[in-house]
């Protein structure tokens, strides 16, 4: 039996509406100081201390090919990846939405390559498009970097 609806946690980065499956999100936390890591790959923004656990913060904007903006409001979406947790700094947190699975579609073909590569699906919300990120692909290096 398959579920007929999906619950997506949504947030914004550079105005773009993005989301992650609720089951992949551990929590949303505020104001995390990011300790930079010299020599780290560009996808790693630094490390954050979440109640004694040290998590890598992923540079989401760099990963999906967006301009880096100085608008650090300190909101992080904490993503579960296997046994590890990963922190994802975002510009603002929106809502948790429950969506009918028939509204799920493949991400549009004409998206920027590095953004398209990180997307699992696109959801048509009527007035706007929600891009659902794929955690697995998100934390891989950008494909353009490998070629």
């Amino acid at each position: 039996m398959t579920e007929t609806t999906s619950r997506i946690c949504t947030f914004r980065v550079n105005g773009l509406l993005l989301g992650l499956k609720v089951s992949d999100v551990q929590e949303v936390v505020k104001s995390q100081h990011i300790t930079p890591v010299p020599l780290a790959p560009p996808i790693v923004l630094g490390l954050v201390n979440l109640r004694g656990l040290v998590l890598p913060a992923v540079n989401l904007k760099w990963r999906i090919g967006l301009q880096s903006t100085e608008n650090d409001c300190g909101i992080h979406v904490v993503l579960r990846h296997g046994t590890e947790l990963i922190s994802l700094p975002v510009d603002s947190i929106e809502d948790v939405v429950t969506l009918d699975n028939h509204r799920r579609a493949n991400p549009p073909e004409n998206l920027h390559l590095s953004l398209r590569d990180a997307c699992a699906a696109a959801w048509d919300l009527g007035n706007q498009l929600l891009l659902e990120l794929d955690p697995e692909r998100l934390i891989r290096q950008r494909d353009s970097e490998n070629t």
Binding site: T35, V37, P38, L39, A40, P41, I43, V44, L47, V48, N49, G52, V54, L55, P56, V58, E84, I86, I139
Partner: peptide, 22 residues
């Protein structure tokens, strides 16, 4: 080290200092 930082030879791990700094 988190797996994203594995393979950087300069580091062997992470620790937290008394004030919570990494």
């Amino acid at each position: 080290l988190p797996s994203l930082l594995k393979g950087i030879p300069a580091y062997s791990g992470i620790t937290l200092l008394g004030d919570g700094a990494i």
